[in-house]
């Protein structure tokens, strides 16, 4: 058995980190630990993006996921405090859900196997980034011949900017509108209906800070009538 190449080592380490992070995310009892697992998985995948010549995406992955999404998860977990923890969670998964998940696991593994080790020998290799037959550089040369412009390298900020602001400007603007709507919607949903909070006695000064979420929740419960009995 020959020595593994540096690419194989890099891929193996990153993949192992990603899978480990994913497993921690899914199995951790404590959601904070889960969020940390998600962070690990995201980092692993960002590293894999680098190996696929997606430098810009790797940066975005870290900024958006690690910097924003995971932090948002942590905020919510901390806002909920101990209630974010659901201790009975692991033991009561419905049998059919487990069965479905197991089937999915088996099926996806089987499919992956049959797909690419079916003996036909058509396993595609990545086209090389160095000069030679089948190289990406040949395509770059062809584009240069056709348009007289030297294209940017695959996955660089320059290349992505070209895609986002030239070819995909309209989808990009639509995405920005989507984000705006999401922000407004998130604020509206998270804040709840006005007047739902506990009624303040008259004379209390209006500038007092909003009631803690627990108090608001109990008020909401009172407004919604008797809550269904929880299973013990």
């Amino acid at each position: 058995m020959s020595m593994p190449t540096i690419q194989q080592v890099y891929f193996s380490i990153c993949a192992a980190l990603a899978v480990a992070g994913a497993v921690i995310t899914v199995l951790a009892r404590n959601p904070i630990r889960g969020a940390m697992g998600l962070l690990l998985a995201i980092g692993g995948m960002a590293a894999l993006f680098l190996s696929l010549s997606a430098e810009f995406l790797a940066a975005v992955q870290l900024l958006v996921y690690a910097g924003a999404v995971v932090v948002l998860f942590l905020f919510v977990i901390m806002l909920l405090g101990p209630d974010a923890h659901t201790p009975r969670d692991k033991s009561v998964a419905a049998p059919r859900l487990v069965a479905a998940a197991g089937a999915l696991l088996v099926a996806s593994g089987g499919i992956a196997t049959i797909l690419f080790w079916n003996g036909t020998g058509r396993v595609p290799a990545f086209p090389p980034l160095v000069p030679g037959p089948g190289s990406v550089l040949n395509v770059e040369a062809a584009i240069e011949r056709a348009s007289g412009v030297t294209p940017a390298k695959l996955g660089t900020i320059e290349a992505m900017a070209n895609e986002v602001y030239v070819a995909g400007l309209v989808p990009f603007e639509i995405a920005s509108a989507l984000l705006l709507v999401a922000v407004v919607g998130a604020v509206a949903v998270a804040r709840g209906r006005q007047g739902e909070g506990p009624r303040r006695p008259a004379g209390e000064k209006s500038g007092s800070p909003p009631a803690p979420i627990g108090a608001m929740a109990s008020a909401a419960d009172a407004a919604a009538g008797p809550a269904p009995a929880r299973r013990a």
Partner: peptide, 10 residues
């Protein structure tokens, strides 16, 4: 929700 998701998986 998860029952529905399971049906989707099937």
């Amino acid at each position: 929700v998860q029952t529905y998701a399971a049906a989707m998986v099937v």
